[in-house]
Amino acid sequence: MRRVACLAILLLALVGGLILWSRAQRPPSEPPAPTPPRAQNAPESPASQRITIYLARELPRGTQGEFVLSPVEREVAATAAPTMASLEALAAGPTPAEESEGFRATLPEGTRVLGVEREGGVVTANFSRELRDNFNGGADWEEIVLYSIVNTLTELEGVDSVRLTVEGAPIESIGGHLSAEEPLRRNSEIVVRGKRGE
């Protein structure tokens, strides 16, 4: 009986010590990694596939309304075309839980995805006119909107660049600051920038 008590206490001491140790072990210099929140109620079945989309995320206080792109994951049906599914997830925006963590939708209100075509490494994404007409933002917000689309699509295997069209026609720009005439390549800097201040 006494021996059992003795062992139990020893075990407790060990476990407690380990917990403390592992807590202290975390290097202080490493900022906490943003936890990619999963889509709610997404079934983990082999009939689904996982895609990554890039949403706007407001940096924590101290940086005042500074946005960056941050990846989140979604489970979609395995049968869905990943390009279309990614853009539709992007148009749907963040879940309420993500929204409370500072995530924001990037596509202007009412923007619909009209279609996606893929030719080699170039994907052409066709949107409704709201992409341009309802865009509200300055230079940096336009960068967020533009590259949320580009980075989401170039996340997919074999996609190098993205061409944007509105109702089937090429556009000069979404918001009048950045060019969207040529197919655009991924912008990693705008994601890295996110680690600033976190």
């Binding site: 407001e58 005042q64 309304g65 946005f67 990037t106 509200n136 300055g138 917000w141 967020i144």
Partner: peptide, 14 residues
């Protein structure tokens, strides 16, 4: 010359 806006009203000024 431009004026600004971002993803959340009243979150930024300057």
């Amino acid at each position: 010359i431009h004026c600004n806006a971002n993803g959340r009203p009243n979150s930024a000024r300057g």
